[in-house]
Design a protein around this nucleic acid. Sequence first.
DNA 1: GTGGACAGAAGTGTTGACAATTTCGCGCAG
DNA 2: CTGCGCGAAATTGTCAACACTTCTGTCCAC
Lengths: 210, 210
Amino acid sequence: MAEIRDSLRARIAQQHIAPGAKLRETDLAEEFGVSRARVRDALAALEQRGLVERIPNRGAVVIRLDLSQVFYIYDLREVLEGLAARLATQNAPPQTWQEDLARFRGPLKDLVGRGDLQDYIGHYEALRRKIIRAAGNPVLAEMLDIIFEKTQVLIRRIIILPGRAEVGRQQHVAMLQAMSRGDAEEAEKLRRSGLRSAKAAFDKYQRFIL
Amino acid sequence: MAEIRDSLRARIAQQHIAPGAKLRETDLAEEFGVSRARVRDALAALEQRGLVERIPNRGAVVIRLDLSQVFYIYDLREVLEGLAARLATQNAPPQTWQEDLARFRGPLKDLVGRGDLQDYIGHYEALRRKIIRAAGNPVLAEMLDIIFEKTQVLIRRIIILPGRAEVGRQQHVAMLQAMSRGDAEEAEKLRRSGLRSAKAAFDKYQRFIL
DNA sequence: GTGGACAGAAGTGTTGACAATTTCGCGCAG
DNA sequence: CTGCGCGAAATTGTCAACACTTCTGTCCAC
């Protein structure tokens, strides 16, 4: 069952299945070569995770993010990733962040300068995952997973907004500096203000993103 | 299906079913008068919510909170309920909190003084729900629900710790004052420090609680 | 008396068939 | 030409039976 669920989850998160699309149990059962019951289990799991909505007797449709939901989620990301930054700073030795700081200061600055945002997004997401792992709080990690699945596509669209990548890079440099000197409170504050400015960028350009 | 799931959820949250207890599908199916398939659906939902653990071919057992999980959850409550306090202050008119402030300053002070903690817990949980509702962020509400289900019993045990109720009451008065004057940032800070001290109280008395 | 193999019991995992509900096309009255 | 009702098709909801895994108790060899 986990296989089907994860496969569908990945497809939805990467929008290989469009928001609003209907998921027919029979079709999926045939595609995966299993019985309908197992597909139903997978859909129930995705419903709990908030990736699909199931209407009784009418089937499952992929959740469509509306504007308000995006703001709800950004308010949550602000405090949750702020917490992750604080815990990561407290738990990991300061030199852990040296290499990341160097990368965001040097090579990635060039990358962003050249407009090679695809690669930059890769490094951004890798650092995000590293911080969450270092925070060492599985419940927090689980919650960030859930909201990241819903907005993965959005985050990428915000990063490629004009000027946004460079601003974000500078904010990450500042945060990594705080983390490198073990200042957990400051790291939390900086991560929070970084996400607030990402939210503001979304607000400004929302009509180009949604 | 929702009926079975919610019934089981309530029982687990209130520990009418003990942590570590095995849930036999056949028994539950008979008790609710439905087929095993629907019980299985309900158990799958509870597993996703983190209330039960399912081991392949060996059935479902109610999750047993260990020490580290409690700390994980308190770190999360700190930032999530802090966010709720901030949003509630921003969204609701300041006079919304007047009556709560009066109640926590007057009648509840007497209640706590007399040691009538059962009633106090009721008011405490009512205010908590009111703040979450006023925050108006359903994703946040959902996440707080999930972690509250797991620790409901614990929270009640912390409140009845010696001296804890009065400290908590005073912290709530301070927070409600900030909310009454519309100071959202301060309300968030105060809620966070309140939860930090609750976590410290748990830390100190953990052997009496778990 | 102790340890291991084996068989039966108990419980979970999976499936296919059947029931209930919704959707959609078609005919018909206005 | 449009709106309404009806019935067939499609789709989801439910169930009971079967398959597989794990647990348990008994028997026998040593």
